[in-house]
Simulated assay, not measured.
Amino acid sequence: MSNQIQLEIVTPDRKVLSEKVDYVGAPGIVGEFGVLPNHIPFLSALGIGNLYYKLGGKTHYVFIAGGFAEVGPDRVTVLAEIAERAAEIDVERARKARERAESRLQKRAEDVNFARAQASLQRSMARMRCRSSAEGSGTCSL
């Protein structure tokens, strides 16, 4: 039995990560779940948030938005709609996206798609939390 688990994260565009890790925590659609080696197999829909994994005592972060995670005893495969390593996140772009989404939500105009604006707001805030967590602050300055 191995003390590590293979983590694969892919999007429709690219392979984001393929690495043996000690632990995986992911944002399931109904709440966060954690996976250690030799976990019972299951399938989960993913929400918007930060997937994190531990390797050699260090925590690494990946922003995830939608998709599925397939968990097995020796592997976690994440098929995500959007996935970005924390270092890839452009905080200024996320901040501007948050401002646009907040502006749309405040307008309350008939032509505003509220569900879309709320999803955009949620994604931008999760991106900023992911980046700030990776930088060690643990919080996001909103």
Results as ranks from 00 to 15, higher is better:
Y53E: 12
Q118E: 15
Q4T: 13
V21M: 06
A109L: 10
A119M: 11
D22Y: 09
V91L: 09
S132H: 11
M128Q: 12
A97T: 04
P73S: 15
A65L: 04
Q6G: 04
R131S: 11
L55V: 08
G57Q: 05
S133R: 15
M125A: 04
H60M: 12
S120Q: 12
R116W: 11
A101F: 11
R127E: 11
L17R: 06
I82C: 09
A126S: 12
L55A: 09
G57P: 06
M125S: 08
Q122G: 02
G25Q: 15
P37H: 07
A101V: 03
A109S: 14
V16M: 05
N3M: 13
V24H: 09
G34P: 08
N113I: 01
P73C: 04
T139H: 14
A80I: 04
G47I: 01
M125H: 09
R129W: 12
V16L: 02
N113G: 07
E99Q: 14
S141I: 08
M128G: 04
E19N: 01
R98W: 08
I29Y: 12
I5H: 07
A119H: 07
M1F: 12
E110A: 05
S18C: 01
G136N: 00
A126Y: 07
G56A: 05
C140S: 13
L17V: 08
V78M: 05
P41T: 12
L7G: 00
R93H: 03
D22C: 07
I29A: 15
E70F: 10
R85Y: 06
I40W: 08
P12R: 01
R116P: 05
I82W: 13
